[in-house]
């Protein structure tokens, strides 16, 4: 809020003293008459998503349990038999430490592309929400936090699977949901940015086949990026997923290098901030038009 606007609001408050009593009561009488604070505005967006999502908890929440199992069984046990070690670790360990964050990416990317588009264009959910005292900014920040939360919770099933099969040490895997949250918000910001350009829902196919799926393979989950040809390596370093994967892996396998850890964290923060900002700026024009 600019300072000039602040002062006009202050003036408005001061001038309320001179208003007729009915009008004064109307403006600030009961405790609900001042608009809800920022935390409540963002929280209620988040809360709406939680409630709607958890309505179908079984069908929504079961696949994330199965997916890592299938992947670990198929790739880890099958392919893993032929690969003795990857970067000095058993392949199953190497793979699981990366898989911990990929589910967070997928869920956030889906939520803030298809999900957001449906809420925006088909179900008109946002039109309803924006008739309540929240701003478009509040709404979009709530979306990102919700996708981050999904990233957090979707990491838990993977965490349970890899720790119950004793693939990774329980104590270290416990940190994975936090990385899941960061991955979730990061891909929420980027997916909202992509959504802001999308006119028909089919365009998301390009996003998923052209960007999200290749990223799964070139961000160090299934094989280390440092083994890629030298001309592809910088590209892999640019990919957003590479960084949370490295954080997750270094924490799980106890190979943390602090400078690299903080560089990755910084990348995630800067990426989320800027794409979040662009996404909010662009989508706001579609929400308030």
């Amino acid at each position: 809020m600019s300072s000039s606007r602040k002062s006009t609001t202050r003036q408005a408050h001061r001038s309320q003293k001179n208003l007729p009593s009915a009008e004064r009561e109307l403006r600030s009488g009961s405790k609900h008459r001042t608009h809800p604070p920022l935390w409540n505005r963002i929280f209620s967006v988040w809360y709406r998503h939680v409630r709607v999502y958890s309505k179908n908890l079984i069908s929504n929440g079961f696949p994330p349990f199965l997916e890592p199992l299938i992947f670990l069984a198929g790739i880890g046990l099958g392919l893993g038999n032929y690969i003795e070690q990857m970067k000095g670790f058993p392949y199953l360990q190497f793979l699981s430490s990366g898989l911990l964050v990929s589910t967070a990416m997928f869920t956030a990317a889906f939520e803030c592309s298809f999900g957001t588009f449906i809420r925006l264009e088909f179900d008109k959910v946002y039109d309803g929400m924006l008739s309540a005292p929240i701003t478009a900014n509040n709404l979009l920040i709530g979306e990102m936090l919700w996708a981050g939360t999904k990233g957090f919770f979707f990491t838990i099933p993977v965490m349970i699977v890899v720790s119950s099969f004793r693939i990774l040490p329980v104590g270290r895997v416990m940190l994975a949901p936090v990385v899941g949250f960061l991955t979730g918000t990061m891909f929420a910001a980027f997916s909202l940015f992509v959504t802001s350009f999308v006119k028909t829902i089919n365009h998301f196919n390009f996003y998923f086949t052209g960007f999200i799926s290749p990223m799964f393979f070139f961000s160090g989950i299934v094989f280390p990026v440092d083994n890629l040809p030298s001309f592809i390596r910088p590209l892999a370093e640019l990919l957003p997923l590479t960084h949370p994967v490295r954080i997750s892996r270094s924490v799980c396998l106890n190979t943390v290098s602090l400078p690299l850890f903080f560089t990755d964290l910084l990348y995630i923060a800067v990426f989320t901030f800027f794409f979040g900002l662009f996404a909010v700026k662009r989508l706001k024009r579609r929400l308030i038009n």
Binding site: R5, T9, L26, R27, H32, R33, T34, H35, P36, R41, R48, R51, V52, K55, N56, D123, K124, V125, D127, G128, S131, A132, P133, I134, T135
Partner: peptide, 24 residues
């Protein structure tokens, strides 16, 4: 343009299209 929150706190809006949460 600047104080939508105050206005929406004092007003109820019924938009043209139904936008209830059908899951609930």
């Amino acid at each position: 343009r600047y104080e939508e929150l105050q206005i929406k706190t004092l007003s109820g809006v019924v938009p043209q299209e139904d936008n209830l949460d059908s899951e609930l």
